[in-house]
């Protein structure tokens, strides 16, 4: 059984200008211990997906339909207190710009000890030692001394490690990492990525890594879901995705990565992300797609499986006879 199964998830934002259908029927599944990357441009709905799973979508956003089945229970049907009890204990989340994600008035030690006491259910007299252990597990030097640090005294990388330590304190089964390395140095990025992977290998925590950086995702993810305009347009094991991308958008993304020693212009994807208030009819990518034909403009493509663990939502595949 899948650890998490998202079925037909719809999250709309009710703005003054109209309804923005950020997610309009999203589907994907996650196996225990698996790391899946949600990759897409800004505004493709990848962060909203993360927040929707934890039911932390802020107004004017609202989850209007679908199911988020976690260990057999539909989270969207849980009463709020039960949902709150599940956050941080079964599903945890870390954020971009980690320094703003820590309460500026609470020391690292107090923060961790509270999470350990309330979430992991540790008695008060054991939280301090466990906090030190957690900090050293995320490779923070001199953890004893760090307990009394305030967030403004931490570097970005350090703050993210603290966030990770807090997130895994209660040994959650799923960790949602929303652009965890945005705003960090490249070297620190690599360290954080290694840490996330290490965590999975040691504790078996499944992870959803939300990022706009395909290269970064390829370093740690077992599988990658490419998102475009609120839909997953291709889902495949990382290696397969890089070797045989099926969706024109994925191909465009892969082609637009700069390569070492490359001269001349980097090929981009022409056009811009569609306005989700009035998404294009049919395939949402068709206005930018070099291969678009009549059917793409009227009919919404459905996932076409090229192998049991690889699908893409594109009519081209049907034409090729995969359906």
């Amino acid at each position: 059984m899948s650890l998490l199964e998202v079925r037909g998830l719809k999250t709309y934002f009710y703005t003054r200008r109209g309804v923005v259908k950020v997610l309009d029927g999203l589907n994907f599944a996650l196996e225990p211990g698996q790391i899946v990357g949600l990759v897409g441009e800004t505004g493709s709905g990848k962060s909203v997906t993360g927040f929707s799973i934890l039911r932390l979508v802020r107004r004017p956003g609202r989850i209007v339909g679908g199911e988020v089945v976690f260990e057999g229970r539909d989270l969207l049907k849980l009463p709020e207190p039960q949902m709150a009890a599940l956050r941080g204990r079964d599903i945890a989340m870390i954020f971009q710009n980690p320094r703003t994600a820590l309460n500026p008035l609470i020391t690292v030690g107090r923060f961790l000890e509270q999470v350990l006491h309330f979430r992991a259910g540790l008695p008060r007299n054991r939280t301090r030692d466990e906090a030190v252990r957690l900090l050293s597990a995320v490779h923070i030097p001199d953890p004893e001394r760090r307990l009394s640090s305030y967030p403004h005294q931490l570097s970005g990388g350090m703050a993210q490690r603290v966030m990770i330590a807090a997130a895994v304190a209660a040994r959650p089964k799923l960790l949602i990492a929303d652009e965890p390395t945005t705003g960090l140095d490249v070297t620190v990025q690599a360290q954080i990525m290694r840490l996330l992977r290490e965590l999975r290998d040691q504790t078996g925590t499944a992870q959803i890594l939300i990022t706009h950086d395909l290269g970064l995702a390829s370093e740690v993810c077992d599988a990658i879901a490419v998102m475009y305009a609120g839909e997953i347009v291709e889902f495949a094991p990382t290696r397969t995705l890089f070797a045989t991308p099926k969706h024109p958008y994925t191909r465009g993304l892969l082609a637009s990565r700069p390569k070492l020693g490359q001269t001349g212009e980097i090929p981009g994807i022409r056009g811009a992300v569609p306005d989700l208030m009035n998404p294009p009819r049919g395939c949402r990518f068709h206005p930018r797609c070099p291969h678009a034909f009549t059917r793409c403009r009227v009919e919404r493509p459905r996932p076409v499986y090229v192998s049991p663990d690889h699908y893409a939502t594109c009519f081209l595949l049907e034409e090729e006879g995969h359906a």
């Binding site: 934890l54 932390l56 802020r58 207190p81 709150a84 009890a85 599940l86 956050r87 941080g88 204990r89 945890a92 989340m93 870390i94 954020f95 710009n97 703003t100 994600a101 820590l102 309460n103 500026p104 609470i106 999470v115 309330f118 979430r119 966030m163 807090a166 997130a167």
Partner: peptide, 22 residues
């Protein structure tokens, strides 16, 4: 609107704790 409030909710703080502690 700040991220730490969201983060506090994401580690499962109930509403009254968010209000009084954060």
């Amino acid at each position: 609107q700040r991220t730490y409030v969201l983060a506090a909710r994401a580690v499962g703080n109930p509403p009254w704790r968010i209000l009084f502690r954060h």
